[in-house]
Simulated assay, not measured.
Amino acid sequence: MDSKRALAENLRKNIYDLNMTQAEYAKEIGIPYTTIEYAISGNGSVSLSTLDKIAYGTGIDPWELIRPPESK
């Protein structure tokens, strides 16, 4: 699994676990909704800066966000 797909799956799981919408999640961590939508699609790449913002906002280490779920 590549890191884009791992990020998408990990974000989906985190949003689900928090019982939030993608829009609520994006607002909570301080990034545009379209950025979360783009990352969750698994089709695009986010910059390292954006990955850091997501990680900081969620309290999850950046490497955990891109680590394949099955290897956790």
Rank of each mutant, 00 (worst) to 15 (best):
T50V: 07
S49Q: 13
S3Q: 05
I29V: 12
Y33M: 01
K27L: 05
S71R: 11
K53Y: 05
D52R: 12
N43Y: 13
A39Y: 02
G30C: 07
R67A: 04
Y25I: 00
Q22F: 04
S45C: 06
Q22C: 03
Y56M: 01
G30I: 04
K27C: 01
G59T: 07
T35M: 03
A55F: 04
D17V: 07
M1H: 09
P68R: 05
E28H: 09
P68A: 06
E37A: 14
I15K: 15
Q22H: 11
G42W: 02
T34S: 15
V46T: 06
I36D: 08
A6K: 01
K13L: 11
S41Y: 03
E24G: 14
I60S: 10
N14V: 03
K27M: 02
N14S: 03
G42E: 04
L7T: 00
S71T: 12
I15C: 15
E9S: 12
N43T: 11
D2P: 14
Y56K: 09
S47N: 05
M20C: 03
T21K: 12
G44P: 00
P32Y: 02
L51D: 08
P68D: 05
I60Y: 05
R12W: 01
S41C: 06
R67L: 05
I60C: 09
L48K: 00
R12G: 12
M20Y: 10
I40K: 14
P32N: 09
Y38K: 15
T34G: 11
I29N: 11
A55I: 02
V46M: 03
I36L: 09
I66W: 06
N19M: 08
L65Q: 08
Q22N: 08
G44F: 10
W63T: 10
D17C: 00
R67Y: 05
M1Q: 09
L65S: 11
S71A: 06
R5I: 00
R12Q: 12
I54P: 13
E64L: 12
Y38A: 09
Q22S: 12
A55H: 05
R12K: 15
K27S: 06
I15A: 13
E9H: 12
L7H: 01
E37T: 04
I36W: 08
I36C: 10
P68S: 02
I31V: 15
S71M: 07
Y16N: 14
A39D: 09
E24M: 10
I15G: 12
R12N: 15
M20D: 07
Y25N: 07
D61P: 06
S41A: 12
S41T: 11
A23T: 11
I66R: 10
T35N: 09
I15F: 08
Q22D: 11
P62H: 08
K27P: 00
G44E: 06
L18A: 10
K27A: 06
S49I: 10
G44I: 01
A26Y: 04
E28W: 07
V46Y: 07
N14G: 06
T21N: 12
G44A: 12
N43A: 13
I29H: 14
I66N: 08
L11P: 11
M20E: 13
S47P: 07
Y16L: 09
E37S: 14
W63P: 00
T58Y: 08
E64V: 02
I40P: 09
N43L: 12
S45R: 13
N43Q: 14
R5N: 03
A39T: 01
N10D: 06
K53S: 12
E28C: 01
